[in-house]
């Protein structure tokens, strides 16, 4: 066997490889994406979930913005205090760590509590369903549609639909705010993670209508406001609203609420 019959093909292919390799090497220099060393270090300290809670396209975009000083490291709500401080030390400056928050769905209009006005066979996406006339199956027009758009968008798996209403798993929730932005009914809020009492209703209907639509509606009676010793509860648009920064966790509101719209919630952190 002639050795050249192997050598020639080998030489030809390696030659081709070399030419293309050189071409690529040249291109790599020309199209090099300049990566700041700091950016990579910051990126390592970020959660890497690309949730978009900070308003940037992903963790990498956020890291870029932090390195350029456009935004504070603490604006990543998902990150724990330790990592945020670590980013501060990379940047060589002191950063404040914000209080941990969590998402909360202000509706408990479950299949059992809320009245259905029709059988719903429509679009299975809250954002679209909220736009069409009728908007979902529940009589209450303020409540959770229960179609689960928030579940779909939550990258941390903290949302779920239970009995027709979205609920948040406070342990998994990182307060990225994606569900808050997604919910077309605007019933998901961010509250301090350590809060214990919450008004689970957003209905601005008159007390009678609200009550007939849903057993656990806030009817705007104001009993909680009058009984709260810490003056943490105010009425906003016919709905009670607890200021969790003032609340002393006494539990009188839960006790006095005639419709059980105020409940104790699991606090974390």
């Amino acid at each position: 066997m002639d050795i050249t019959s192997i050598l020639y093909p080998a030489a030809a292919i390696s030659g081709l490889g070399l030419v293309f390799g050189a071409g690529l090497g040249f291109a790599a220099q020309k199209f090099a994406v300049e990566v700041d060393e700091k950016v990579e270090m910051i990126l390592e300290k970020l959660p890497g979930a690309n949730c978009g809670g900070c308003g940037y396209a992903g963790c990498e975009a956020f890291a870029n913005a932090v390195a350029e000083g456009q935004i504070e490291p603490s604006c990543c709500f998902v990150n724990d205090a330790e990592s945020t401080k670590a980013i501060g030390s990379i940047l060589g400056k002191e950063v404040k760590v914000l209080e941990r928050q969590r998402a909360m769905v202000a509706c408990r209009g479950t299949d059992e509590n809320a009245k259905e006005k029709n059988l719903y066979y429509g679009i299975t996406d809250c954002r679209d369903a909220a736009l069409i006339p009728g908007g979902g199956s529940k009589s209450c027009s303020y409540g959770c549609l229960g179609l689960g758009s928030c579940v779909e968008v939550c990258v941390f798996g903290a949302m779920s639909i239970k009995d027709g209403v979205a609920v948040v798993d406070p342990e998994k929730c990182t307060a990225c705010g994606t569900c808050v932005r997604t919910c077309p009914k605007h019933i998901i809020h961010l509250i301090p993670a350590k809060s214990t009492y919450h008004v689970n209703c957003m209905s601005e209907d008159k007390g009678k209508d609200a009550k007939s639509n849903c057993k656990v509606a806030c009817i705007g009676c104001g009993i909680c406001v009058r009984n709260c010793e810490a003056k943490a509860i105010t009425m906003k648009n016919k709905v009670a609203c607890i200021d969790n920064n003032i609340c002393v966790d006494c539990g009188v509101c839960e006790e006095k609420c005639p419709t059980k719209a105020i409940t104790q919630i699991k606090s974390v952190g």
């Binding site: 030809a12 292919i13 293309f20 390799g21 071409g23 690529l24 291109a27 790599a28 199209f31 994406v33």
Partner: peptide, 21 residues
Amino acid sequence: TIAFILVIASLVQLVEMVIQK
């Protein structure tokens, strides 16, 4: 086959760089 794959692989690398940039 091997020569064409070599060409295509290099081109894809190039496209990847351009798009990333």
